[in-house]
């Protein structure tokens, strides 16, 4: 790990301004992704701003009937919250399907959204990777790509976003609230928050350098059945090969998002429209532009079968 200086943030605005003034600063929340990457010198900040003293750890009702979740609410506490369990079961389920009890106790809402890919070549600093080192090439496209993305991919990068929580937030149409480095408040719909890789896979979100996430807002509850199904190589404590999150109403209408397939939580309006017709047409719409590799073509069938199981569970 490279040496760094350390400060504890006293206010949100000061934290954002301080981060903007040093280009290689990082905020540290739970630290479970950042420190992992710093040990490997994939992240090499020279200054860390510890944001754990800022509060932002509550879950509150909004006047619109939704919920405002603080950036520093731990994944365990969010999953266990009574209102979330009752009205946004999809979010609890997605959180509980991720990582381990120890990690969820530390992991925060904002840190989870900003966790970086688990592409094996991103982690292997001996291999070219456009995301880690722009312009060096992508080892995954011709390499071992079983775990990687099939849709929204580019010739520069086929990595996936690894968060389970983000799939639920995408299906629930959450909004990410931030403070810009100049102190202005800003809100970004989750649909626009994560970027596709294009030819700049190292730029993963629309956040500016130093922009600080204060929380995430959920709209009023949708009702319906909330189901999250994650398919992975072992039954627990593993990242998704693919996952399907859905909210399905008694009449069969609803919304669906998929994980493990793209550089961002993947949701397509046409797939929501096709949902009442069943898993096959909905998956065809969801993955219409898929460009899988030889190694990960299986994910298309896996999404369809998993969605089939989700629809069956919603009816049962």
């Amino acid at each position: 790990m490279r040496a760094f200086t350390y400060e504890r943030a006293s206010t949100i605005e000061a934290a954002a301004a301080s981060a903007a003034s040093h280009p290689s600063t990082r905020f540290i929340a739970g630290g479970t992704n950042l420190l992992d990457l710093m040990k490997l010198e994939i992240e090499v900040p020279t200054h860390l701003i510890d944001v754990n003293g800022l509060g932002l750890d509550t879950i509150e009702k909004t006047p619109e009937g939704g919920l405002r979740i603080g950036a520093l609410v731990r994944n365990t506490d969010l999953a266990a919250d009574k209102t979330v369990r009752r009205d946004y079961g999809l979010l609890s389920r997605a959180l509980l399907a991720g990582a381990s009890g120890q990690l969820r106790n530390k992991a925060t809402t904002a840190g989870n959204l900003l966790q970086r890919t688990r592409c094996p070549y991103f982690y292997d600093t001996n291999q070219p990777c456009n995301k880690r080192q722009p312009g060096s090439g992508c080892s995954a496209i011709e390499g071992f790509s079983r775990q990687l993305g099939i849709v929204g991919v580019s010739d520069s990068c086929i990595a996936t976003h690894p968060s389970d929580m983000a799939i639920a937030l995408r299906a629930l149409d959450a909004v990410v609230e931030t403070v810009k480095p100049d102190g202005r408040r800003h809100a970004v719909p989750i649909a626009e928050f994560h970027r596709l890789p294009g030819n700049t896979p190292h730029i993963e979100t629309v956040l500016e350098q130093g922009e600080f996430i204060t929380g995430v807002v959920l709209p009023a509850p949708l009702g319906g059945r909330h189901i999250y199904r994650k398919v992975r190589d072992r039954a627990s404590y593993a990242f998704a090969l693919i996952s399907v999150g859905a909210v399905i109403q008694p009449d069969g209408t609803g919304r669906v998002a998929a994980g493990g397939v793209a550089h961002r939580p993947w949701r397509v309006e046409a797939a929501d429209v096709a949902l009442p017709q069943g898993a096959r047409p909905a998956t065809a719409a969801l993955l219409a532009d898929a460009r899988p590799t030889e190694h990960n073509r299986f994910k298309i069938d896996l999404v369809e079968r998993t969605l089939g199981a989700v629809i069956a569970e919603a009816k049962g």
Binding site: G30, T32, L35, D36, K39, T76, G101, Q102, L103, K106
Partner: peptide, 23 residues
């Protein structure tokens, strides 16, 4: 040393965490 095994589990304020992934 990367959060993948749990051998470093301790309790902080009564909650279990991976001591290898926190400063």
């Amino acid at each position: 040393d990367h959060g993948q095994c749990g051998a470093c589990t301790v309790m902080v304020g009564g909650r279990r965490v991976n001591a290898c992934l926190t400063l």
